[in-house]
């Protein structure tokens, strides 16, 4: 990885630092925000912003180094893009359901979950 041309090294370095910044901001958000529903927004910063930047950096670095397109890392990005909605959606519904079960003040006036929480 040390024999990259200088432009590729700069691009890869900037993308890496941008990805790290996104991940760190997301983590700070998870620590700082005061309510679960607000905290639910912070992880998608590392799932979308940071993953995109770091995966792009890896693709560019390996492709320039090998002299041919290396697209392995795109699978990681694709996988995260497909699974992040499922986990975040499930956690949002869990929070709504548990708040309702514990008789906490529920944030929603209407009932979006329908009759049972597992109904599709």
């Amino acid at each position: 990885m040390t024999d990259l041309p200088i432009w590729a090294a700069i691009v890869v370095g900037l993308l890496l630092i941008a990805g790290g910044t996104f991940a760190l901001i997301g983590a700070i958000g998870l620590l700082r925000l005061d309510d679960f529903y607000r905290r639910l927004h912070a992880p998608s910063l590392s799932a979308s912003g940071a993953t995109t930047c770091i995966v792009l950096a890896s693709i560019i670095g390996f492709s320039v180094m090998n002299g041919r397109p290396v697209l392995r890392e795109i699978l990681v990005g694709f996988f995260i893009m497909c699974t992040a909605p499922v986990t975040l959606m499930l956690l949002g519904r869990v929070a709504l359901y548990r708040d309702r079960a514990a008789d906490r003040p529920v944030v929603a006036e209407s009932d979006p979950l329908g009759a049972s929480p597992d109904q599709e």
Binding site: Y37, L40, H41, S44, M81, L88, R93, S110, Q119
Partner: peptide, 14 residues
Amino acid sequence: IAAAPGTAWLGWNP
């Protein structure tokens, strides 16, 4: 909605 950090999906009422 999941990829955009400003939004979170809580439920879908069919």
